[in-house]
Design a binder for these strands. Structure first.
Lengths: 224, 224
DNA sequence: ACTATTTCATATAACTTTCACGAATGGAAA
DNA sequence: TTTCCATTCGTGAAAGTTATATGAAATAGT
């Protein structure tokens, strides 16, 4: 399971962030200051740390530098989007930053983005049965036939294929493929799924996109 | 693998630079001062050294001169962009310099630029099917016919050819061929791709530049 | 003066989204 | 169970959008 360390002297913020993260399926550990954080990471090695810039004693930048030595990616929380903060944040080695007050959704989005950047999610090759996705080439190969899909269809398929069998909620897919700020029609996803299905079915019957009514879609693999 | 030596008495800087470099796929060795650096290079011969100017005992300039004797390219880190530093840096034989505080992106960019200049990051000869690129002579040969391409087209082709099949994002290509600070028209890339295509198609049909809409371009090789 | 590079204007095709309607689904009521 | 109903989803076609291609002209560079 993915564990995220939250460091802030404001208890409220820590709890708030924790709530949203656990709701998304992450496990969290909390620390009120830099020293506490550093003692904690010896026991539990987090996959990512969310750190407030403004803290007594050890500030966020200093902590970030230390965390980077352990190769733990860092997401900074800054009070204002001042350019100074931005620059020195990246300089300290943080991977991204979120300005307080933040939208929970945006925080989650950035967390996922960082994790994606570091995790197995970056795997250039995904294989599900006879379906192979080459993210570097933007190609899909099925039984030695190579297909080039339009970008949205490609990303949709890629997302579904990262965890075959798991149901991806419609919202999740929209956010993943279209980004946070898509305000379009709900039918858009349907149409893209439809076209993706057409192509998939024509190519193979081993892999199939299943609808989970009221929830979303999943990729089902028939094992021969 | 490309190995980079980092020399600075400030531990934080060394670590920070190291993090960004390893993230980009380089391997690093660290030294806290000039003497340490000089003993290290006997064991591990680095492809490049990043050296801080301000160091106790042996300063960056002195170390640079010694490193140049071993034919190791040097990137200097200077505290302020003062002209004095700049001049004496190049005088000492450094290949480039970066002013602290620096943007990670810029550091990486300059590192790559130096490595490219020394042909350390790639072979001087690239071969893709019947297409051969001689980076030393700046020549392209296809089926025993030698072509001289304009610089931008040459670099574009070279970049694409280093990893045939892989999609290079437009941003990446722009940065690679035009540099970090190009603020020109978005169409520029299109036009260059177009002219490169014309020449390629006229010369061979084995190699082709493919468009991946919304992403970038890739070089596709038809295997007979 | 010549080539290389960039810009501009316009075309075109690729992709994306919307729309309208029909089919499937699942829960509630009969 | 069966029927009804509301909702969700599938589908074909049309409309819309945008990225890229292209021809030609303007700059920049040697």
């Amino acid at each position: 399971m993915t564990t995220i360390l939250i460091v802030d002297d404001e208890r409220e913020i820590v709890d708030l962030v924790s709530i949203h993260l656990t709701r998304e399926g992450f496990s969290t550990i909390k620390a009120a200051n830099g020293n506490e954080a550093l003692t904690l990471i010896d026991e539990v090695w987090p996959d990512l740390a969310i750190v407030d810039v403004m803290m007594p004693n050890m500030d966020g930048f200093t902590l970030t530098k230390k965390l980077r030595q352990y190769d733990i990616p860092v997401l900074l929380l800054t009070a204002k989007g001042s350019i100074e903060d931005k620059e020195s944040g990246f300089q300290a080695g943080s991977d991204d930053y979120v300005v307080k007050p933040f939208e929970p959704k945006e925080l989650i989005y950035r967390v996922r983005a960082i994790l994606r950047r570091y995790n197995k999610d970056t795997t250039p090759l995904i294989q599900v049965g006879s379906l192979r996705i080459d993210r570097e080439r933007y190609e899909v190969r099925i039984d030695d036939v190579t297909y080039m899909l339009p970008l949205k269809e490609f990303e949709l398929l890629t997302t579904l294929a990262t965890r075959p069998g798991r149901v991806f909620e419609r919202d999740f897919l929209m956010e993943r493929v279209w980004g946070l700020d898509f305000s379009g029609d709900d039918q858009t996803l349907n149409v893209h799924i439809k076209r993706l299905r057409e192509k998939l079915h024509a190519a193979t019957n081993e892999v199939k996109i299943m609808t989970v009514r009221g929830v979303g879609y999943k990729l089902e693999v028939r094992k021969p």
